[in-house]
């Protein structure tokens, strides 16, 4: 075993790559199918699934589905809305949740442990199951707008943003990460007379890159993929995000080519974003110390 010849090492290397490639194929083939299909007319797309042609850009290839998608629905608006809602939410959510995490990890206050348990318990309430009561709540909230106080939050960006500015998982991730940080950092800063907020902003956050990245990805995905909630609260087209927009493509005669084009358009930005940052993503999740 210990004295391998160069040949067996080469074969073993080949085998390793062969396995990796095979597994990789399992993970990419549906996405390849989606992208390739978005270039085909509906009829061809459907008949191609019975052969390898499903994965090849062959036959009648064009961008027609994309042009048709733009004619069917304001695709650019939906993508803009989603990206806007998602980024605002993610940024504010990280600030709010990291502050909470900081407080739970470093500050002493009455009822802290109970509060933390309550926060973590909210982790197990799926949004779908409280959507209707939540609708009643947001419908009775005030907002100060241009014309004084308005009641009810429906049909706006804020109704898609504010309820998601805090969530248990993100708070939990920050608490876990902060607890593993060396205590002396804080002590040193305290001795220098820094306020808690200064410690949070100047000492802790700058060294929290990994957990920020992890939380950002998880929040981004959760927000970008929202469907049921925006459907319930957006009445005008102007505020609708991509997943509600998807419904525009399911009509009496669904055009699968256009569906594939739309799916590609709403998926590719996320994929590109991810691929551009993937090294940071994976190393960050890997080093977040999600260690239980």
């Amino acid at each position: 075993m210990s004295s391998r010849t160069p040949e067996t090492r080469a074969t073993s290397l080949f085998m390793r790559y062969a396995i990796l490639v095979l597994v990789a194929l399992i993970f990419v083939f549906p996405l390849v199918f989606m992208l390739v299909s978005s270039l085909k007319p509906s009829l061809q797309l459907l008949s191609d699934t019975s052969s390898i042609r499903a994965f090849l850009p062959v036959g009648n290839i064009s961008l027609d589905n994309y042009t048709a998608s733009f004619a069917r629905a304001p695709v650019a608006l939906f993508i803009f809305n989603s990206i806007f809602i998602t980024s605002v939410t993610v940024v504010l959510n990280l600030v709010i949740c990291s502050m909470a995490g900081f407080s739970f990890a470093f500050l002493d206050w009455k009822g802290k442990d109970v509060m933390l348990s309550v926060v973590i318990a909210t982790l197990i309430v799926p949004l779908e199951t409280i959507a209707i009561p939540l609708l009643l709540v947001v419908n009775n909230l005030p907002w100060v707008g241009l014309h004084g106080i308005e009641w009810g939050w429906l049909n706006s960006y804020r109704v898609q943003i504010v309820p998601f500015l805090s969530d248990a998982l993100t708070v939990f991730l920050f608490v876990q990460y902060f607890r593993d940080l060396p205590r002396d950092l804080i002590e040193a800063a305290r001795i220098d007379g820094a306020s808690w907020f200064q410690i949070y902003a100047k000492v802790i956050m700058p060294i929290s890159g990994p957990v920020i990245a992890t939380a950002a990805i998880l929040r981004f995905l959760a927000m970008y993929n929202q469907y049921l909630w925006p459907l319930m609260v957006t009445q005008s087209e102007q505020y609708r995000p991509v997943m509600v927009g998807l419904q525009y493509f399911f009509q009496l005669n669904t055009d699968w080519g256009q569906v594939m084009a739309y799916l590609s358009m709403i998926t590719v930005p996320v994929l590109a974003f991810y691929l551009a940052l993937q090294r940071a993503f994976i190393t960050s999740i890997a080093s977040t110390g999600i260690k239980g």
Partner: peptide
């Protein structure tokens, strides 16, 4: 500092629950 987070959770998750 946990205030904003707790208020939001209370209004948009715990209250509806």
């Amino acid at each position: 500092m946990a205030g904003p987070s707790l208020v939001i959770l209370a209004v948009f998750l715990i209250l509806p629950f």
